[in-house]
Design a protein around this nucleic acid. Structure first.
Lengths: 225, 225
DNA sequence: AATAAAACATGACAAATATCATATGAAGTA
DNA sequence: TACTTCATATGATATTTGTCATGTTTTATT
């Protein structure tokens, strides 16, 4: 099993602020998991009791709403941590994490890392910075949800996904999402998402290659009203 | 000027985890302000460079959307801190804070408290806990915005406001908000908020006494679809 | 290859919400 | 007091979005 102290992934998250000794100890108790696309990493209501460090892949964090839809709250990519809230709260998770492609994650149990939070202020401060950033992003999502049209939100989502998860050599967006996924990100009916994407395609703003989407005209996407 | 180390308000936020010495130092550099209803505490885009501890009153945190509406993201009450993000980020504020009634706040400059964040892990951990809680609440708001109707969101807002900000002796909700405020919380047009409140009133679910609203039938509010 | 099951697509219609217009009462101001 | 402004209210209408039905395409499975 690979060692935390040598892992480059930690550079992208708060674990970089652990000391070498702390990292070696963490390394000894962590478990690595391979998670296939579509598999659930943890469920809403589950006691997570630890954090996951994402070594590879992308996952969505979602929450079931009363009307049965699974609203995506955030997408998380390689390098980031998920489940941090479980470290500072004894409540069970308010979100479900599902792999959007094949993933590799390391799980660090709360019992092993909690002491570091209480003793290493640099680490805690780093966690705080990450969470402050997440909170800011969540605020932006709230405003978008409340004030923008489905078409605008979908346009923004396409730009976001391309920017954050990259493109293939042919220019298509690397991450393949179903129309239902897109609907659950923007918070609309699947049919509505399909319709808007069809319209974008008809207008030449995007094109599709099989299940892959390519943005043809970013500025048009930005101008969507 | 009152002293932080004797102030009971700090029990409700992370400042309680500062040592007596730290509190005495903070006390020496803090400034107290009285803010009248409607006044802005800080603006979107402003460099705050410190935290505000709310000694009394209620304020809203909002963000201007592209369509010119001022979306309320969160309401904050006596005992809580605002502006924490400025402590861990050099970015300017993403939100505007506006007093919803007469307030009394203390401002603690970043320069004085930042060292405590770096040295007192208990304090940092407490800040982290608060922020984790805020993040969870923000997630819930995202789901509500995306999946619930205006009527449901307004019903929930009424319940929330009554629960969190209390009632007057006659049973009316203490906090008086304009219809526009309600619209900006729920994320809808002012006319729509007015219409829904009128309907609730017609149905006997709420009643009004001047500008005050009284919830007459909470369970009906909960049942709204 | 045959079949079943998803995912995608689109029409028709209903429901929710926004927008614009206008009116009225309340509150502040000259 | 008269005037102005603002908040509340409501109708009429347009637009957006959801829902239901149905068909097609793609993907998975036997």
């Amino acid at each position: 099993m690979s060692k935390c102290e040598q892992c480059i992934i930690k550079q992208f998250n708060a674990l970089k602020s652990l000391t070498k000794d702390e990292l070696i100890r963490i390394s000894g108790c962590k478990t690595s998991k391979v998670i296939k696309k579509g598999e659930i990493i943890f469920e809403e209501g589950e006691a997570i009791n630890g954090v996951y460090c994402i070594k590879d892949g992308i996952c969505k964090l979602s929450k079931l709403s009363e009307n049965g839809k699974d609203q995506v709250v955030k997408m998380v990519v390689k390098g980031q941590l998920i489940g941090q809230r479980s470290l500072v709260s004894d409540e069970s998770s308010n979100l479900q994490a599902t792999a959007l492609n094949d993933m590799e994650v390391c799980f660090i149990p709360k019992s092993e890392i909690i002491a570091d939070l209480e003793r290493n202020p640099k680490f805690t401060l780093d966690m705080l910075k990450d969470m402050a950033h997440d909170l800011k992003e969540a605020d932006d999502v709230i405003v978008d949800m409340a004030q923008k049209s489905v078409k605008q939100r979908l346009a923004e989502t396409l730009i976001y996904v391309e920017k954050n998860f990259g493109t293939n050599p042919d220019g298509t967006i690397s991450l393949v999402l179903s129309r239902e996924d897109y609907a659950n990100i923007v918070g609309t009916a699947t049919e509505s998402a399909i319709r808007v994407l069809s319209q974008f395609k008809k207008e030449g703003i995007i094109s599709t290659v099989g299940k892959h989407i390519r943005i043809e005209d970013v500025s048009a996407l930005r101008r969507v009203e």
